[in-house]
Design a protein around this nucleic acid. Structure first.
Lengths: 236, 236
DNA sequence: AAGTGGTCTAGACCACCAT
DNA sequence: TGGTGGTCTAGACCACTTA
């Protein structure tokens, strides 16, 4: 017995989730039932669930049950939105979608999204306003095969966050992402959209977002005016 | 019984550590002994220790024991160094200390370090080379009261990382930090030190580092040339 | 009141490390 | 070989939510 039992249980639960046995937001069977199902003690089942909770794949609520995690405003603001106003307060941006088109991926995008060269991708351009001021310009690339049928109206009329839309309409659950941050100069497009002079210095953020098993499903490039905002990061 | 027992045990262990009962790097008594000491079961003791391990305050090693965590190159590189070469590889920077002086804190620094206005602070300026190329210029501010006796030779002749020096010579254990990242223009000093034209666009990183109980003990400002490097961040 | 997750216990056994 | 942390079990009881 080399591999711990709870890791095997964890793997089985994760597999059931990705296979759609329990859609996002639905409760799992209770702990004693699950432990019976897997033939392990409740303690071992709990250890497996604890790991999945830590990975934000499950959410436990005392007295209610254990649920497959869903994206919502709080989660996005807390985990996936790193731009803060200089006053330190984190506010949700107002997202204005400027365009949405289906195009062929260039080499760069195809590589990042693990697609074949020339595969179709959706390209969405958004303007982000924070406190009513244009703060960032945002380009999102999504593999067309996973997001078939996406259109600008769907994007604009979504009820929750962008990641909530991915989850609800396309079954794509974003679990984590990596970002690369660099300084860059302001192009003509950014100057116009963000209403700033060309001489302004911007922050460029490139993000790769991943779903289960670390599969990349979104690539973003965001350019931020850091005069009134900053990019926040926690270490340790 | 409102507060869980294991949180109380955790608090007591943390308190013992901060009071110096077990210096950094030394092993704690074994689990059954500790559980007897606190009058709880081994399971409860383990839950308390698990939390402290998660917070990187303790380190467990199967078969050896449980130790108060120490700073080393791996930890610094993994948790406290976010600058990567464009090839994605994380390399440890070569740190060249340009100056170290004791000065009076201005309002800004005093506020960030929770000091009274005009308190003495050490100001250290470093040039960071990655792959033999100047990549960043770094200003560190430390409260003099905690780092009494610091001098440039001590700083230059340290055997490990900067945080290792804090820990070993001054008993200051850095546990976490927050960073604010902005884009900025290149000043004359940066241009000279980093051997770049004034027109280069830089990344400015401000860091507040904290020890036990979230007390701030270091403030840094780093300016990075992001032509060959980027700032990396993980979300989720 | 019934059902859920959360805490705590006591003990058996395993895997790893030092000597 | 003896000591350490790691896994796993079975069960009692607590705290919270819902109806």
């Amino acid at each position: 017995m080399n591999a711990p039992l709870y890791l095997d249980v964890r793997r089985q639960i994760l597999s059931s989730i990705t296979l759609g046995k329990w859609p996002t937001g639905t409760p799992l069977p209770n702990e004693s039932e699950l432990s019976r199902e897997f033939g392990v003690s409740v303690g071992t089942l709990r250890k497996a669930v604890e790991e999945l909770v830590h990975d934000k794949i499950l959410v436990r609520q005392q007295g209610r049950g254990t649920f497959v995690a869903t994206h919502n405003v709080e989660r996005t603001l807390l985990d996936f939105f790193r731009i803060r106003h200089n006053d330190g307060v984190s506010r949700f941006p107002e997202i204005e979608t400027l365009s949405l088109r289906k195009i062929s991926a260039d080499e760069n995008i195809a590589q990042r999204l693990h697609l074949v060269d020339g595969a179709k991708v959706y390209r969405i351009i958004n303007l982000l306003n924070v406190n009513g001021l244009p703060a960032a310009l945002d380009q999102i690339f999504l593999p067309a095969e996973r997001f078939e049928g996406l259109n600008i109206d769907l994007f604009r009329s979504r009820s929750g966050t962008i990641y909530h839309l991915y989850q609800n309409r396309f079954g794509v659950n974003i679990l984590k992402a990596e970002e690369q941050v660099r300084a860059c100069k302001c192009g003509a497009k950014e100057a116009r959209a963000l209403q700033i002079p060309r001489s302004t210095v911007l922050l460029e953020i490139e993000r790769i977002s991943r779903t289960y098993y670390d599969v990349p499903v979104e690539w973003r490039q965001t350019r931020v005016n850091t005069l009134h905002h900053y990019y926040s990061s926690e270490l340790g």
